[in-house]
């Protein structure tokens, strides 16, 4: 297995976006790309990352391999790469390590690191294809700010989607808060658009703690998609055009 990115920045951001939620995980490498699927320790959230082979500068995977890696260790290794350095990952069949090589574009500095692989049981959850009742596309910075603001007042947020607006509400010991975002088009700046596709109205409650973990992916993508159906996990997708995506799933809180 050998995969090269032109710039380390994307991989650094991907690891930063998931390492606090899932500690150790397996990267599944096939000829179509690298992916991981992992639950957080409390089994409430699920992370799915896909890095497509087309998004790499060069990519080769002769035999499918599952590489068990501590994401904190991977973040440490990636700290040694400059944002504009190229990154090459190499793993040979049956080897217990993965190699990272970083090269500056002027080629005057090359650094190499070897990370020990871990044995990790890989059990994947089956994520069904779902027709969601409501899909909201919005700037990722808006979601990050909304979740951070509401976290000051409560632990949970109720997200309600109607035809032309989406409402985030919370309440706690000191009071209540809500943020309403209305659909807005923008032909010249599509990344600032708020688009709401509503088949059925949805209202779901989630723990803000997890949403705040998810919005760590905001530096990867200007936009985010919230896909919701009643009594179904929320899907928060940060698309990376040409490269892949990070999808987070979160179980809703249920009424007693």
């Amino acid at each position: 297995f050998e995969a090269k990115w032109d710039h380390a920045s994307t991989l650094k951001k991907v690891i930063d976006a998931v390492k606090d939620l899932i500690g150790d995980t397996s990267w599944d490498c096939t000829n179509t790309g690298m992916s991981l699927q992992s639950m957080d320790s409390s089994h409430v959230a699920l992370v799915h990352v896909l890095l497509k082979s087309e998004g790499f500068e060069s990519y080769r995977c002769d035999r499918n391999v599952s590489m068990g890696i501590s994401l904190n260790s991977m973040a440490k290794v990636l700290k040694c790469a400059g944002n504009d350095d190229s990154v090459t990952l190499r793993h040979e069949s049956e080897s217990s390590v993965v190699n990272f090589a970083f090269e500056s574009h002027k080629e005057e500095r090359v650094s190499e690191f070897e990370l020990k692989l871990m044995n990790i049981d890989t059990e994947h959850l089956g994520i069904p294809e779902t027709e969601y009742d409501s899909i909201i596309k919005m700037p990722s910075a808006d979601l990050r700010r909304t979740c951070a603001d509401l976290s000051q007042f409560g632990d949970s947020v109720t997200i309600s989607c109607a035809k032309s607006d989406v409402r985030f509400e919370t309440s706690g010991d000191i009071g209540t808060g809500n943020v309403r975002l209305s659909a807005r088009g923008s032909s010249d700046k599509p990344e600032t658009e708020i688009a709401i596709e509503m088949i059925n109205p949805v209202s779901l409650t989630f723990a803000l703690k997890y949403l705040n973990f998810f919005t760590k992916a905001a530096p990867l993508s200007d936009t985010v998609k919230l896909c919701m159906s009643n009594n179904h996990p929320l899907c928060v997708e940060f698309p990376m055009p040409e490269v892949g995506y990070i999808r987070y799933y979160l179980a809703p809180k249920i009424d007693e």
């Binding site: 089994h43 959850l125 089956g126």
Partner: peptide
């Protein structure tokens, strides 16, 4: 606070 079921309730292990 309302209970939060594990994600496997919705997406069982394959």
């Amino acid at each position: 606070t309302n209970p939060q079921p594990p994600i496997e309730t919705f997406f069982p292990f394959m």
